[in-house]
Structure formats: structure tokens, C-alpha cells
Design a protein around this nucleic acid. Structure first.
Lengths: 217, 217
DNA sequence: GTCTATAGATTGATAGAC
DNA sequence: GTCTATCAATCTATAGAC
């Protein structure tokens, strides 16, 4: 007595995973452009190609959806943080980190904008993350840079302003992508332009620290 | 037959100017935090300490109010652009421009955020400004920098990525002020910290271009 | 799991007493 | 010039047929 149900394996779970991914991607794009309050569930639904009610079937509320978008971004940020490897010295460590962050600005533009929006609004959601995870990560890298300076491996600068400079410069290519593309004749940056921008950013910062630019990867 | 009216000179005009200023300042702060769609007239009214209806008495619509806020910011941006004086050579020209932009990030945080929000949303309002005024200004400074490079006054880099780097780094101190202050123990940067950050930014960029840092003013 | 219909709250904007 | 009351539109969220 075999029924016609269960023809595919775990159908409900697959549909759920696929739709959640669809909605999360749409939400990321809409939250990126309009911020939390400016975004509407209707915009997100339209972008996902689903009726508005389906969003509330998969996510409890607008804030719950936003929270998951922000969490996803934070894990991507954590992954990029690993590129800041301190064991190979300042030139290699900094240039790998800068290159990785430039890559993320190209591949995860929306995520960067959502983070920027969240911080500009006073971090109502990620305040504890700033105070714990980001603070610890920042302090540990500041110590590493101070070690390099003490060892005479780079010019003495306050590591904090150096880190902010790297964050600002790399994330600018995501957050201000529209301005950059407008000044580029309304076209996205080409592969060659991304590579040159990355090389220029690495070159100026490393040069400013008295280092020779390492391989941009 | 002297009436009790007209005791002060031009009372209506003074009241109008004062209230418009009050509303514009409140609107700039609210638009900075929430973007155009996320901001509400009620929030702006509360911040200005006025009933909501008064906003519509002085400004025709939410969009009209937003437009005036953005225009005010653009004039401030224009003023900063003048600090990029090319006649004194790269070290003086660039360091004065960087110092002026850092100063603006400190004194006009909200304006910078409104601009960032507007660009992140795809510049629905200032698109023509990007294509005309900003493009012309950028092209003229790129030419100036290319002149310095041709004269052997600085290391050869693509001037475009250099300009983006300066914009990104300086505006970061306004747009991400909340993150910076959180990492500073929930306190605003002191005078000394602002000065040191400005010196560090100038030092790294000028050093990366093979220049000696000029006076940070 | 999907989708139409709609409830309940909030929005931009205006009318009209003061 | 100020401010309460209110309208029409839009928002988040849910109910309930399919």
C-alpha cells in the first residue's frame, strides 16, 4: 500500500530552505537601500516574487527578518576578519586583509550597506555585537600592530586610526557603489578597475607605513 | 494713534527664519538616522519641539523639506572642495583638503549621513548633481593630480582611487561615528584624538604618495 | 504551503478654530 | 502664526479559503 506522497525526499524542508533564501536575499537588498524603517514588506515581497503574506509565513515579523539579515552579514564580516593573519608580518597581513575586504565589497554590496545603515542609526540591533565581538577583535589586532611597531617592522602610527582607514576605504566601494559607478560613466567597475583600485589602496597604505606592497591576494 | 502692533521690526520674517532653521536642523538629524522613507514628519516635529502641522506650514511636503536639507549639505560640500588648492603642490594641497574634510565630519555629522543615505539609495534626488557638479569637480582634480605626477612631484597612482580613499576615510568619521565612539568607550573623540586621527590619515596617505606630511591645517 | 481579504495602527497632509 | 482634529493612503500582521 504505497501512497503517492513522499515521492521526493524531504520536500517541505527543501521548499522552506529555498524560499527562506529567496526572501533573505530580497530583504537584504531592500534593507540596504532604505534602512529598516524605510523598507516595507511589500517591497521585499515584490523583489522576491512572492505574495506579501508568505513572508510572514516564513518569518515571524519584519524585525525578525531584519535580524536574520544582519546576522548573516556579521558572519561574513567574521570570515573576512580571519584574513587579518598576523603571523606573516605587516606587509602580508595587511595587504591580504585589504584585498579580502575589497573582494567582499564587490560580492556583498548589499550586506555592507545594511551594516552601514544599522550603524548610522545608532546600532539599535547590533550594539552588543559592537561592544563585545567587534571590540575584542579590534583590541587584538591593535595589539598585533603594536607588536609590529615595537619590533621596528613598520612606521609608528596609532593602530586604531589605521584600522578605521582600512574599513572606510574598502567599504566605500560597496556603500558608495552608486556614486562610483556614476563617475565611471554609469558602468560597474571592470575586473581590471577592481584590481587596480585594490592595488592602489594597498600601495598607498603600505607605503604610508614604510612597507613594500605585498602580493594583492 | 500708535497701535501696539509692529513693536519689533519684521516680526513675521524673523519668526519664519528662526522656525525654518529649527525645522531644517531637526529634519537633518532625523533624515540622517532613518533615510528619507524611514523618517516621519512626527519624528521631525518632536525633535524640533513643534506640532506636526507647523512643519507643513513652513514646508510644502516631506520631499520639499528633504530637498532643502540635501541642498544645504551640498553647499557645505562645495565649500570643503575649495580647500583642495592645487597651486601649492601635492603635500600642502592634499593635507589641507584632508584636514578640512575631517573637520567637516566632526562639525556636520548629520549632513554627511544624509548624503551617504541618499547615495546608498541610488541618489534618487542628487543624481543630476553627481553627473554634473561632482563629475566636473572630480575630473578637474584628477587633472591636477596627474599634473603633479607628470612633474615628478608625487608617486604615480590612479588619482581616482586616491580621491575615493580620501572621501571614504574622512567621511567614515561622520557616518560611522557611533561605531567609533562605541569602540572609544562610549565617549566622543576628544580634541586630541581628532587631531591625532587627522595627522595619522594625512601621514599615511601622503607617505604612501612619497610626500612629507605638511602642516595639518 | 499559497494567497486573497482585511483588521488595526500609522503615515503624509489638510481643514479650520484660535 | 499655532495647534487640534481628522481624512485618505499605506503599513504590519493575521485570518481563513484553497
Amino acid at each position: 500500500m504505497r501512497s503517492e506522497l513522499n515521492i521526493t525526499e524531504a520536500p517541505k524542508t527543501e521548499i522552506r530552505a529555498e524560499n527562506e533564501r529567496l526572501i533573505l536575499n530580497a530583504a537584504e537588498a531592500v534593507f540596504a537601500e532604505h534602512g529598516f524603517r524605510g523598507a516595507t514588506m511589500q517591497m521585499i515581497a515584490d523583489r522576491a516574487g512572492l505574495p506579501k503574506a508568505n513572508l510572514h509565513y516564513y518569518f515571524t515579523s519584519k524585525e525578525g527578518l531584519y535580524r536574520q539579515v544582519v546576522e548573516r552579514i556579521f558572519f561574513i564580516w567574521l570570515e573576512a576578519a580571519d584574513a587579518f593573519e598576523t603571523s606573516a608580518g605587516p606587509a602580508a597581513g595587511l595587504s591580504r586583509y585589504i584585498a579580502r575586504k575589497m573582494e567582499l565589497s564587490r560580492t556583498h554590496r548589499h550586506g555592507s550597506k545594511v551594516w552601514a545603515n544599522e550603524v548610522m542609526q545608532g546600532a539599535p540591533l547590533v550594539q552588543d555585537t559592537l561592544e563585545t565581538a567587534l571590540r575584542e577583535w579590534t583590541d587584538s589586532r591593535i595589539s598585533a600592530i603594536e607588536g609590529w611597531i615595537a619590533a621596528g617592522q613598520m612606521r609608528p602610527v596609532n593602530p586604531r586610526w589605521l584600522l578605521y582607514m582600512i574599513w572606510a576605504t574598502t567599504q566605500h566601494y560597496a556603500d558608495f557603489a552608486h556614486q562610483i559607478e556614476t563617475l565611471n560613466g554609469a558602468r560597474p567597475l571592470s575586473d581590471a578597475q577592481w584590481a587596480e583600485a585594490t592595488r592602489t589602496v594597498c600601495g598607498i597604505i603600505l607605503g604610508g607605513l614604510g612597507l613594500h606592497a605585498g602580493p594583492a591576494a
